[in-house]
Amino acid sequence: MSDFGFHLAFWSLAAMTLGGASMIMISRNLIHAVIWLVLSMLGVAGLYLTLSADFIAVVQVLIYVGAISVLMLFAIMLTPRAERDNSQNIKTGGPAAIVVMLVMISTLWVAIDTDWGAVREAALTDQARLIGESLIKHYILPFEIGAVLLTAALVGAIALARQDDEDAAVHASSLQAELDGDGSVDPVDVIDPPIPSDGEAGS
């Protein structure tokens, strides 16, 4: 376990995770921030592999890297008039930094100072089978509650994000006006242009 390859994997994956997270903090563009989030999540998945938790690593890649990042990119694209910028809030930045420093000092203190006892050498093997068996034997009630929660959350998300028909017409016309004024998006992409844009074309 103390061989060179493991050290290299741990330190490079740790640098990838923390570097990606720091770039989210720094980057000004929200889409770039999501891409850095993907890098950070991939680093965490690799760290799961160094902890020999292979099932969790695969789930991490599938859900976080695959699904959640794409969902976030969709949400960014669907809010076109909101600012893309990912800048810090000036008013809360200072107090937030103080609170975060306190949390960091206390958690690092606990992590380093506590005697965690003997380290187990053998990792858990055959995890996918064990997790699946315990999910449908021992944890059957939380499993079912989780299923109901996911269904309810996704139906609720669709119900929230869905537009009514008259709402959609108003939204489309205002979007069209915005796109005409903005000029950054090709007007061919808009399906139903309700506003004649002859006056806008020259300006």
Partner: peptide
């Protein structure tokens, strides 16, 4: 590389995420 390394890494990642959640202007941020 033992438990403490991973705990320190998790604590640092948590603090970065905490700062981002507290200080970003955009709701998606």
């Amino acid at each position: 590389i033992g438990l403490e390394h991973y705990l320190v890494l998790g604590a640092l990642l948590f603090c970065i995420g905490f700062f981002i959640a507290l200080s970003k202007k955009n709701a998606i941020g």
